[in-house]
């Protein structure tokens, strides 16, 4: 397994994305990656902690990641009830945190502002080893609340596994243009749902959790995969660390927001093997992106395989 994390703040010290969760238990073949993006609009309430002031959004994303990591550590390696435990721990953890912070409630009346609101999206995984590495099976359980995403990158391309919780039924391209409000997020009121989906993969995969700073400011959803592969296949990129730096630069150059991404490779013996496995896909994707087709036409073609179609457990 290879692990890569990206994190950058638009304004130093004010980043509403938490540093991503990324824990791997090599011995048991299990792990978790997750990201959280505090909702700056809904979570604008300032809280004084010591001599510093933090927004509810800032505190919420950190808390969500901390709880996700703690829950993984508590449950690992048996992850059968992970999602239920995580939901319970989030409910309790956020209630305890707000009780600690909030000794006087604001007079504002609104459904727009929530206490400690954040997205959370991630995946726990378990490698079932076969007789050979090629016979490995990868069990995953994706979880999400909000519009941060979990993707799987396979030899055939990138797919979004999580679903965006939006107030409107928009696909990934439509939402780039319309920027619909989020319909569900983790918060201290407890009125949230942690969605989840179990899938099984019979081939090497890359699991990716990302906040909207990584994909929400690109011309089309294709470009997220394009940046992943274009940096991976750049001639000068020959190590995971170099890929990490190139990817961060690529996303930072486009993003209007904080960035948080965690990525884990499952079933690839080396960085070179990952490159080899994805080169054909990169070539065909590049051809599509630089074709004469309009962004809408490119999306229509890309969309056919974009939404995850793995074997659901």
């Amino acid at each position: 397994m290879m692990l890569l994390t990206l994190w950058a703040e638009k304004i130093a010290g004010k980043g509403e994305d938490a540093f991503p969760a990324s824990l791997i238990d090599e011995e048991n073949g299990t792990g978790i990656i997750a990201v959280a993006d505090g909702l700056g609009g809904a979570g604008s309430t300032p809280y004084e902690i010591g001599e510093k002031v933090f927004s509810g959004a800032y505190l919420a994303s950190r808390l969500a990641i901390q709880i996700a990591e703690q829950t993984f550590v508590e449950e690992n390696p048996d992850l059968e009830n992970f999602i239920q435990k995580l939901q319970n721990n989030l409910l309790l953890g956020f209630q305890l945190k707000i009780a600690q912070l909030d000794d006087r409630r604001s007079k504002l009346r609104t459904r727009l502002i929530k206490r400690l609101p954040t997205t959370l999206a991630g995946v726990v995984f378990k490698v079932q080893e076969g007789a050979t590495m090629a016979e490995n099976v990868y069990q995953t359980e994706v979880f999400w609340a909000g519009d941060s995403r979990v993707y799987v990158l396979k030899k055939s391309g990138l797919q979004q596994i999580s679903q965006d919780n939006l107030t409107q039924d928009l696909d990934a391209f439509e939402n780039l243009l319309q920027d619909a409000p989020i319909s569900n997020c983790i918060n201290a009121e407890g009125d949230f749902q942690l969605f989840s989906k179990k899938s099984i993969f019979n081939e090497p995969i890359v699991l990716i959790a990302a906040t909207d700073g990584c994909f929400g400011y690109l011309p089309t959803p294709l470009h997220f995969e394009y940046y992943l592969l274009a940096t991976l296949h750049h001639l000068q990129i020959c190590t995971l660390e170099m890929w990490q730096q190139a990817l961060l630069w690529a996303f930072e150059a486009n993003a209007g927001d904080d960035i948080s991404l965690a990525l884990v490779t499952l079933g690839f013996a080396s960085f070179e093997e990952l490159k080899f496995a994805t080169i054909d896909r990169f070539v065909s994707l590049k051809k599509l992106i630089f074709s004469d087709k309009t962004p809408q036409q490119q999306w229509e073609e890309y969309k056919k395989d974009y939404y995850e179609t793995a074997i659901l457990l």
Partner: peptide, 8 residues
């Protein structure tokens, strides 16, 4: 809080 809710 109101200004932040709009600006953010």
């Amino acid at each position: 809080t109101i200004l932040d809710a709009i600006a953010n």
